[in-house]
Design a protein around this nucleic acid. Structure first.
Lengths: 333, 333
DNA sequence: ATCCAAGATTATAACGTTATAACTAAGTAA
DNA sequence: TTACTTAGTTATAACGTTATAATCTTGGAT
């Protein structure tokens, strides 16, 4: 079992048959013994396991998969925007961390801008490429959720939808907005501007609810920036924000839940020489390096990845989806 | 073929056997026809393909894999630092973009801090979990490269090693350093500071060569920051840089090839109220939002992912590694 | 008419695993 | 004794595909 040796070069790759011959047992017995079947004598099981180890046996995934129908694969389907900053990578880090302690493997698909988000999922389901699926940025009436519910395929989302009967993990954006407003109020701001997420996403609603309620409770004025699109490039982002902040009745405190738009807002404020208090939602660590440093409310995506994976594995094991709905609170660094 | 229908619920999943029965041909013929075998009559091939489409046939990956020994999987092995900013996600985006137009799939492994980098690779090779491998951050005498050469397993690295006989993709850090020095010289800087990468990595050497040569040619003074470690957190980074910049004989121009240390340097300069010209190597888009905006020399990781994948596929097809060595020039946005 | 080659299709077997049912030996109840 | 259980092991078959070798046509050359 030396790391340096090229495995199985020259000598044939050991299979259960090899073990069977070595121990004088039947292949079936070997299979059962390796699976830990109670009906095989303890002594036999030990003998088989020892032989397997010595021979350097590793089960053939393809054969197992063909026979059992299980792929032992979890698939993460990324949207085209996931390479923006850390979201995708952090999510993957979290998933990979959990997955490596299980028999599961992680495969990644990413569809391109303008493509049908259902297509890769359809492809995975149709080709039986995975046992379970993860994806993010849900919409209220998400087409992917529609599809997977109908196909009865195990999945978990990052973000909620209008269906409340599937497994999901979500960041508590209502609480985020609430805290952000109060943070700014404490700084003396009275006209609080929010750069809202695209209304296409489900969490837009929660964000707005939290915002509106906190604004009302604190007796403040709430202002909304013009809408953004994830496809907007840096310049467009910059101009829109600039126009808004230069308008009449500008905010005296700013909330930016989107990491990219928050960076843009920070830059605009700098360019305009304004020093508004700014609250951002940080999913990576960039804002720790911005000056002046904004107020930061964190969302831990790596942790999200971990919890999502754990939940999905339980889902695939038969647990009911309704028990696998996780609302993650904001964390304050 | 409607998107909405749950595939294969109730009715059995169509196999080549289903097609064979439907067309009155033998399974073997169907297999060959689907593979486009020239020895099957054109007419028959058409008939089979038509039937396959109508029945919604998709080949069973597990069976193909078991029979042929090919996994059709490319595996990306990430180190623990890849979730820092965009590297991992961008690389994945590039790989995914290419892979989706091929029969290959992408799986991800990420090992944890302090773990043996060879372990996941050993695991993949031993379990035949992939046909080809990608990994980054190479060292001159990289243990992973050692292992894979010996195992004769197809792989491509991001970054060079002391072995010149494997496929690699590398960013031209020598050229980067050269350009960076001259940019700063053009701004009037004469004492140029470099925050060098860890000497553990191969590219440290190229970076230093480019730096030293350009410094000499321009007749400038070259300065090096104290060493960094990717494990250093934001505070340590900050303190080290601060100490260096506050020392006697500080630089009057700064080069930061590491994105994280560049952000830290930017913050320190801000905190100290200094306005040194700063050149960074940008692999995401963050620095477009920093003020004052540093001078940016770009490294396109998504493009790297694309080229790496294309090269790996050609490698697996039998092309010789020496023809698959790509040196990517810096790009100036 | 016979033979042969080329073209097209097919039968057979195998990849490595596991579910199912069948078998054997030993022990227990009648 | 005989029947019956239980523990332990095994034979058989199958998952869906493809490589190999074998078979069957057909048409042309002799």
């Amino acid at each position: 079992m030396t790391k340096d040796a090229a495995p199985f070069l020259g000598s044939a790759k050991p299979t259960q048959r090899t073990i069977a011959r070595a121990t004088g047992l039947a292949v079936t017995t070997v299979s059962k013994a390796l699976a830990g079947d109670e009906r095989i004598a303890e002594q036999t099981r030990r003998k088989v396991r020892k032989a397997a180890l010595e021979l350097g046996y590793v089960p053939d995934r393809a054969a197992q998969r063909l026979r059992t129908g299980k792929t032992n694969v979890i698939s993460l389907v990324l949207d085209p925007h996931s390479e923006l900053l850390g979201f995708g990578a952090s999510m993957i880090a979290g998933i990979a961390e959990v997955v490596r302690q299980t028999p599961y493997h992680l495969t990644i698909m990413q569809y391109q801008l303008g493509e049908d988000p259902v297509a890769p999922i359809d492809y995975i389901v149709r080709n039986r490429l995975a046992d379970g699926l993860i994806f993010a940025r849900t919409e209220p009436d998400d087409a992917r959720v529609h599809f997977l519910r109908k196909a009865r395929f195990p999945f978990i989302t990052h973000g909620r939808t209008n269906f409340d009967d599937h497994a999901w993990y979500d960041y508590d954006n209502r609480d985020f907005a609430d805290r952000a407003v109060r943070m700014l109020a404490r700084q003396g701001a009275t006209r609080i501007g929010l750069v809202p997420p695209s209304p296409a996403y489900t969490y837009h609603r929660f964000m707005m609810e939290g915002f509106d309620l906190a604004i009302a409770q604190e007796g403040l004025t709430g202002l909304l920036s013009p809408g953004f699109d994830l496809n907007d490039d840096a310049d467009i982002l910059h101009d829109k924000l600039r126009g808004w902040l230069l308008g009449d009745a500008p905010p005296d405190g700013l909330i930016c839940p989107g990491e990219v738009s928050a960076m843009a807002a920070h830059a605009v404020l700098n360019d305009l020489g304004r020093d508004l208090p700014l609250v951002v939602k940080q999913t990576s660590s960039v804002f720790n390096y911005f000056r002046p440093r904004p107020m930061i409310i964190g969302e831990d995506i790596v942790q999200a990845g971990r919890q999502i994976t754990t939940a999905l594995i339980r889902l695939m094991a038969g647990e009911t989806p309704r028990n696998l709905q996780i609302l993650a609170p904001p964390y304050l660094p």
